[in-house]
Amino acid sequence: MTDTEIIELYLRRDERAIAETQKLYGRYCEKIARNILGNEQDAQECANDAYFKAWDTIPPERPKILAAYLAKITRNSAISRYRREKTEKRGHGTLPLILDELSDVVSGTANIEKTAEDREIIAEINRFLETLAEQKRRIFILRFVCCESIEDIAKRTGVSKNNVSVTLNRVKKQLKQHLNKEGYEL
């Protein structure tokens, strides 16, 4: 079943939409959640949450790219769960590391909320990402949006873990420079 057909099921309030979503994107959503939470069962629950969230939001939403839409819902759900359970001993996934890594980009003293509208920053980040080579862009997105481990990214992109680490480091520096140049002091 194609994305369009699945979205059509959602729009018609046909419950098969959930099953088809799970069938096509189940592992994908679970993986994103697992990357953040580091726990298989929480990840499954997060993915389930995402299906229901999709059920609740489509319509009125009508995502252009269903996979990306699900990714964002899952990510959001997993982050919420992570916050709720971050004192929990068992499994933290990669989120703490990723947040730590991002300190390279937002290392200034100014409050991000005061320096610019979020959407302007996002637009700038999108422009920056456009300028990157595809491989670098994938590595950046996989790490900081999909929260994948360095090892998984290395496997997925066919480069060494070292290469991934170095690439991420360089892209972060470039992003910081780019944002600073455009007047965003994060």
Binding site: A71, I141, F144, V145, C146
Partner: peptide, 16 residues
């Protein structure tokens, strides 16, 4: 980190 959630869908699609 939350802001990054709003990056263009096409990049996520490309990455995954």
């Amino acid at each position: 980190f939350e802001l990054l959630e709003s990056v263009d869908d096409k990049f996520i699609e490309e990455a995954m």
